[in-house]
Design a protein around this nucleic acid. Structure first.
Length: 561
RNA sequence: GCCCGCGUAGCUCAGUGGAUAGAGCGUCUGCCUCCGGAGCAGAAGGUCGAAGGUUCGAUUCCUUUCGCGGGCACCA
């Protein structure tokens, strides 16, 4: 029995108590969602609910009295072994082994589908992240979002949303010209302009541009400058794509800022804003009255000299996303962009949307790398910025992704490289992957011994007797596995994939504990028992949950390490 | 000055109003004749920055305050 099913039963019991007159409560005072949780302390039971405390007051009873009315009704439920009232009015439920163990069968039947939900079914969500200038390698700040943004999209999809990962290419403006001029200068052997780009990748890029474009240095200006800029841009963007692909983050849409202007999207955006009545002209400039909606000042769209601001692109881009059919636009921005939150929300409001529904902006704090106890500041590739590739070179893709996703994004993150390459308990990614590999090994051995087919999809449900799983550690593990769908749902709702990571770490811990105490395979020439088989089902179910969880993080689940 | 985030064990950090506040590291004590010891079992370690408030109940929500980090543009 899953906690969701249990919650349904409890609600039915509650409604039953009302209709039979045992409980004097209006049906609209029945909570729509009954909270069923794993108690922190498992001595309290397998599951706990606080409904009695929620409805007690409304029913004119103290919480314990309300709990006492519900107690016999819950005790009569199939699969419920014991019901206790504790503390201020918690109702603690204990399931019998068979009912609790059924879950393993359910998990194996569902496979990769286990844990997926429908909370966001039918929603089209645009998740925009990284959006770096194509003028250099991706740095550590981008890297955090490369991992977390992708994981958020995966988690949203697990709850039924149709999500698109989108990369906004800032390919317009003076930065591009500075970049082009820097590459050109490097190619021509001239000093790179003071305000240009000085990373070590610039001369390399220059070499490549010249090699691929014979005669480019001999073009007349301004064609030469443009040719350098465009060629370097193409190479740099391709490099960003390559790096991200290698990082297991695959964008669905690469959206060019320049194309906003050439496609007429900017004009359409302005029309939209004008039609909503929030644009005005003052001192020769055209403004958007964002201060109508919580922004601290109005923003310029068209400068007095007729040039468009960057903010104009932002507004057009938002309107364009909505025109492309996204119900919700999520922006994942660095801490240095936090001043954008209110103005972007105001843009949504100015476009006639609901900022609480159609737009969401998440701010990620800074990332630092530590090596030998000191902050790493120098990159081989890019001089004084650390790149995504530097991190991957040091620790590999799995450890990099996992450790970036493992923490909530709103606190600054310090990655200790020495720890991330260590193969022990203190390195969470290996701890989790190890549990997965260990289970795979047990199942492999079982198949070799002829206990069970190698592939779980060939396992015969009739051979599984869940009532065999009576050990406390088996119960603890099963209860934890049952919680997985709820963890995925809350990770999706809160856009916090780190919850998945923390959860599968708990699963790994619980599994190791079970494994140490409960022998799975028969020893020596012992006969095969139903208990052996039941434990194999539990092992396979655990492996599936770890696998599914790692997949939502974009981290591999190896069968051998 | 104004805005945002963060203050939880010696360290790095979890904890979307619930029971005795958790994990890893570090320190200390145990466990390899058999399924992967990259593991397990246990001990010690806390005025949840501070003060008020809301609540049956606050680390969690609100106010004030102290400390730390980040941000303010007719830049991109």
């Amino acid at each position: 029995m899953t906690p969701q099913e249990l919650a349904g039963h409890i609600k039915a019991a509650l409604l039953g108590a009302i209709s039979s007159g045992q409980l004097n409560l209006a049906t609209e005072d029945v909570p729509t969602e009954i909270v069923v949780e794993r108690p922190k302390n498992l001595d309290h039971g397998d599951w706990a609910t606080n409904v009695a405390m929620q409805v007690g007051k409304k029913a004119g009873l103290n919480p314990r009295a309300a709990a006492e009315i519900l107690q016999p009704l819950l005790a009569a439920l199939p699969g419920v072994e014991a019901v206790e009232i504790a503390g201020p009015g918690f109702i603690n439920l204990r399931l019998d082994a068979a009912s609790q163990g059924e879950l393993a069968r359910d998990i194996i039947a569902k496979g990769k589908e286990f844990g997926r939900g429908t909370q966001l079914a039918g929603k089209k969500i645009n998740v925009e992240f990284i959006s770096a200038n194509p003028t250099g390698p991706l740095h550590l700040g981008h890297t955090r979002w490369a991992a977390v943004g992708d994981a958020i999209a995966r988690v949203l999809e697990a709850e039924g949303a149709e999500s698109a990962r989108e990369f906004y290419i800032n390919d317009l403006g003076v930065q591009m010209d500075k970049f082009g001029n820097s590459v050109k200068a490097a190619a021509l052997g001239e000093p790179i302009p003071e305000d240009g780009y000085h990373g070590a990748y610039i001369p390399e890029l220059a070499k490549q541009v010249v090699a691929e474009n014979p005669g480019i240095s001999d073009l007349p200006e301004p064609q030469r400058g443009e040719a350098f800029r465009d060629a370097a841009y193409a190479l740099q963007l391709a490099d960003q794509k390559r790096v991200l692909d290698n990082f297991n983050t695959h964008f669905d849409v690469w959206y060019s800022e320049k194309s906003l202007h050439t496609s007429g999207a900017v004009d359409r955006g302005f029309e939209k804003l004008k039609s909503q009545g929030h644009m005005f002209v003052e001192e020769g400039a055209t403004w958007l009255r964002t201060s109508d909606f919580d922004d601290d000042k109005d923003r310029v769209l068209i400068k007095a000299d007729g040039a468009l601001t960057y903010f104009a692109s932002d507004t057009a881009y938002y309107v364009d996303k909505r025109n492309r059919g996204y119900d919700l636009c999520i922006y994942l921005l660095g801490a240095d962009h936090h001043g954008y939150v209110n103005r972007l929300r105001a843009v949504a409001a100015c476009a006639g949307d609901n900022p609480d529904e159609n737009i969401q902006i998440l701010i990620g704090q800074m990332v630092k790398m530590l090596k030998n106890g000191e902050e790493v500041r120098l990159s081989k590739r890019a001089g004084n910025i650390i790149t995504l590739e530097d991190l991957v070179d040091e620790v590999g893709v799995d450890a990099a992704r996992y450790s970036l996703i493992r923490y909530p994004v709103d606190s600054p993150l310090v990655l200790d490289l020495d720890l991330l390459v260590s193969s022990t308990n203190d390195n969470p990614v290996y701890y989790v992957q190890y549990a997965h590999a260990r289970i795979a090994s047990v199942v492999r051995n079982a198949a070799e011994l002829g206990l069970i087919p190698a592939n779980t999809s060939d396992w015969d449900p009739a051979t599984f007797d869940p009532s065999q799983l009576t050990d406390d550690r088996e119960g603890a593990l099963l209860g934890l596995l049952a919680d997985y769908p709820r963890v995925v749902a809350s990770a999706a709702e809160l856009r916090e994939p780190h919850r998945i990571a923390r959860y599968i770490e708990e699963v790994a811990t619980s599994y190791h504990s079970f494994y140490a105490a409960c022998r799975v395979l028969p020893q020596g020439d012992e006969p095969v028992t139903e208990l052996n088989i039941a434990r194999l089902w539990l092992c396979a179910a655990t492996r599936q949950v770890i696998f599914n969880g790692l997949e939502l993080l974009g981290v591999s689940a190896p069968d051998r390490m």
